[in-house]
Amino acid sequence: MSFRVVHPEPSGPHDERSDASREVLVELYAPASAETVRVNMIESINGSAVGDDVTSESLSNRLDRRILGVIRDASDAVVVGASTVRQEGYLAPARSRLAIITRSGDLAGHRLDSAPQPPIVLGPETARERVESELTGIPHEFAALDSPALDATEIVRVLRANGARSIVCEGGPTLAGTFLSAGVVDELCLTTAARLHSPGVPLLGPLGTTIPARLTQLIIDDASTLYARWALGAD
């Protein structure tokens, strides 16, 4: 699959159609700094976070999955909500540590048996017992959060205390909205699949605030899928 960088105006080696090699994507998706928080998600044109199979997988394509891998590899921790683990049978990233956020400790349907690194599960102390039951025999770590409301600022603080400088949140919609509302996100990486989908699931939960954004990069592939990088928090 090939693509073009359409913003900023090309002036270097990517001014023509480029093959989606890992080397090129690593350059294009390098984090702005060593200590950063990104949200990476995919949507349909009308803003649905899921496709025909009621997961994000049916919206994705080969280039999106390759970009996903590049962003994960540039991150110390990949953050997902427990509902994503349950609904999508979430596979742990190959090189980064998986961080699962849960209120209840319910991780039914997980596929963490072969995780390359022991995942870290963050939730209130009341979730510990169920997490331990769900992950019996699977190496993992539980980090108790002070706030049962799953405060994104605290989540980032705890992850940083556990060595995660670069963090990417992959959702679902509620968790991504929580991160964005808290003002802890530096960049939104958003893929827009070239399709309309209904009924759908909104890309984000309620934000409760307006967040300024600035487009720093836009790619289009030969299937008309758009790949955007948005810097957040600056007018």
Rank of each mutant, 00 (worst) to 15 (best):
A228M: 14
A99H: 06
L180E: 03
E125R: 10
A194Y: 13
Y90M: 08
P31E: 09
G47E: 08
G177E: 09
L107S: 10
T136Q: 14
G89L: 10
S224M: 14
Q217I: 02
R86Y: 03
P93Q: 05
E57R: 13
L196C: 09
D222T: 12
R111M: 07
R130K: 15
S96W: 06
D235A: 14
A82V: 00
V156W: 01
S133Q: 15
I101S: 01
D73E: 15
R62P: 02
A176E: 00
I67H: 00
A115M: 14
G171Q: 03
R22T: 14
E132G: 00
I100S: 07
P31S: 06
L63F: 05
H110K: 05
S33T: 13
H197S: 09
V85F: 00
E129H: 13
V50P: 00
D222G: 02
N61V: 03
R195F: 01
S133G: 12
P212Y: 04
A115L: 11
I120Q: 05
I67M: 09
S21I: 07
F3G: 14
A228H: 08
N46R: 11
L28M: 07
R195I: 11
T216G: 15
Y29N: 09
G177H: 03
I101K: 03
S48L: 06
Q217P: 01
P31H: 04
A193M: 09
L218W: 01
S75A: 15
L91W: 02
S181P: 05
L25G: 10
P10H: 04
A82F: 08
L122A: 07
S83F: 04
D151I: 10
R17D: 10
D64V: 08
R4V: 12
I219K: 05
R229Y: 05
T84F: 03
R130A: 09
R22N: 11
E27H: 08
A149P: 08
T102V: 06
G177I: 10
S11Y: 11
